[in-house]
């Protein structure tokens, strides 16, 4: 029964990683950049929700929506101010700028919200579900994380496959210049990508902090790196890859903690990543790109 409970917890954690990883993988697929500030958007989203719900008394769902909206604006603003001027610069310059944005968000949060951990009360007040005579207890956050992740995946896949904007995104990720020739506004498409990714990050932030349950300005940093790892794991640029990578990473992390060693669970996660990349150098579902002269 322990195994089953660990598996459910792993899938739940993995679902949160997957939602964060979506932001990384979409931005990478379309703008070809590693957005290291993505993890800190999670933290901003969680803080917005925390203050909206527990200081201004908004209902939980409104807090989440407000967090998503503000993070959406933040994500688009960051892209507009910091990344767009660097569209033609080399990728290392963009990487360093993203890291600068990450430092900026972390330290501003420290100034505004204080450096200490705050207790993040559970948004989902319902009783946990008990199965098998109470031997398997599943909290509502766990179920909500899994459910929301699946819903997000389905909606996003439909959006990318069926809508005009989704088609534009696929076109830009395939070939920016050709897409521009077809009359697609590359800048606008990239903005939309950042908007979606950042709103999802806010959602993931609320789920993550409800599960831990605490919040500090550094909360987003490690899950950010883990989600990035998950995106690479599944093949960066691929949306099903982000789901697969996130779920695998979450399960490996929880199982490693339960059966191998609590202290070494991070090391196990990264070791598995290295092994996967050595066997499949572009991730599990990644496309192989032919090297050209």
């Amino acid at each position: 029964m322990d195994f089953l409970s660990n598996l459910v917890n792993g899938i739940s954690l993995g679902s949160i990683y997957a939602v964060i990883a979506l932001g990384y993988t979409m931005v990478y697929g379309i703008a070809k950049m590693l957005n290291f500030a993505h993890g800190d958007i999670i933290m901003v989203g969680a803080y917005v929700c925390f203050y909206a719900v527990y200081h201004f008394g908004l209902p939980g769902w409104a807090g989440v929506l407000l967090a998503m909206l503000l993070c959406l604006i933040l994500g688009v603003a960051v892209e507009r101010l910091a990344y767009r001027p660097l569209r033609r610069a080399d990728s290392l310059a963009v990487l360093i700028t993203a890291i600068g944005v990450s430092y900026f968000l972390e330290n501003t949060a420290q100034l505004v919200f204080g450096a200490n951990n705050v207790f993040f009360p559970n948004l989902f007040e319902a009783e946990p579900i008990r199965l098998f005579d109470g031997r398997l207890v599943i909290s509502v956050v766990t179920l909500a994380s899994i459910g929301i992740c699946m819903a997000v995946m389905v909606i996003l896949t439909l959006f990318i496959e069926k809508t005009k904007l989704g088609k534009a995104m696929r076109a830009v990720s395939e070939d920016k210049d050709a897409a521009r020739l077809m009359g697609i506004s590359v800048d606008r498409t990239i903005s939309v990508t950042f908007a979606i990714g950042s709103a999802l990050a806010a959602l993931a932030g609320v789920l993550l902090c409800s599960a831990i349950p605490s919040l500090s300005p550094m909360t987003g940093s490690m899950p950010g790196i883990k989600a990035f790892t998950a995106a690479v794991f599944g093949g960066i640029g691929s949306i099903p890859g982000a789901l697969l990578g996130g779920l695998l990473l979450g399960v490996i992390e929880v199982m490693g903690k339960a059966y191998i060693s609590t202290q070494l669970s991070d090391a196990i996660v990264f070791l598995v990543l290295i092994i996967v990349l050595l066997v499949r150098p572009t991730g599990i579902l990644g496309k192989k790109v032919q090297e050209k002269v």
């Binding site: 910091a82 001027p85 033609r88 700028t97 600068g100 944005v101 900026f104 330290n107």
Partner: peptide, 16 residues
């Protein structure tokens, strides 16, 4: 640290 971050971003923007 905020100023450090801003300096970092501005320098990267200016150079590129």
């Amino acid at each position: 640290m905020i100023i450090y971050a801003v300096v970092l971003i501005v320098v990267m923007l200016m150079r590129n």
